[in-house]
Amino acid sequence: MDVDRIVSLLVTKHPEISAEDAGTLLREWVALITENLLREESVETEPFGTFDCSPVSDGDPACPSADSGETAKYYRIGFTPSASLQKRVNSYFAHFEPSLLNEGVSFDELSTVVLGEEKAEEISDNRVRKTVRFATPAPSPVETVASKPVASKPVAVEPVAVETVAVEPVVSEQIAPQTHLSPASLQRHTERKRKSRSSLWIPIIGGVAIIVAGLFFFIPPPPETAQLTVDKLPVDASAPVSAPVSAPVSAPVSAPVPSPERIRETVVLGEGKTLRLLAEELFGSREFWVYIYLENRHIIQDPNRISVGVTLIIPDLQSYDIDPADPASLSRAKQLGNKVLQSR
């Protein structure tokens, strides 16, 4: 029983929780979810995900054809994992990110997929069927709604004394609600309509957010407004490079300093940062990561594994000819980066 396994893991991880409490909570949680799904309502569990029960619409492969003549409606019960669950589940791969391959680099054992033609996600058979049966209608205000003419295909049903309702049961989402004669189901229908209207805003807002994020990343920030905390460290032959600096100085990254000592700028590697991300923030392109690595070779053993909190020297732009607007500079950096990775 997997519930017992989860309970034992819970108790092991948190000894202050009793096995009885954990088991009771899990069972009640599952029972509550199933009750809501049976009522065709979605349930959200914040750190986990959302369970929902939605009608299968026309055009969906799970929807049977209208010619089937069945007096049934079809729903699909689904689970959408939350972002935090997906992050947790993919924690082992968190440090990997898509990387651009140069021409000539190939991996024979890997398959190549054209963008946009990725294999469709496996669709489990989570379709459920609910029988629709006519009851003898009593005169009610709801009947006037149901009696609107609809373009539906007549389906043979058991004979009932229907006087005013001229609606046949169908599978489509738009027409089916009009066959309901109960106020509760009508209310559910209007709630569903409200939810679907409000859910239109989500992709619109998402699209606007993507456009704003794209503008933010593609328009390089002016040097004066650099967000990084850059510590200026006077380079002394006897001083260790990784010595901490007491006062952070907010100054442009590439500002020349007219002093007898050569001032080297450093940056502390924050959580979730990689050399590529750092290079993009400092120089405007991820390809210049290799110069950060070369400048800090004495403290970086593996460019793919660097501890959080390490102080890295920012390479001088002129020394390495770093120019994100120059394709030759980008190409040189890319080639050097590949060479470094292949030599490991």
Partner: peptide
């Protein structure tokens, strides 16, 4: 797997995932 952009021809190595 390797993802191929049909228009630009760029290839990206997509890391594994769960």
């Amino acid at each position: 797997f390797i993802s191929l952009h049909p228009e630009t021809g760029e290839r990206y190595l997509i890391p594994p995932s769960i």
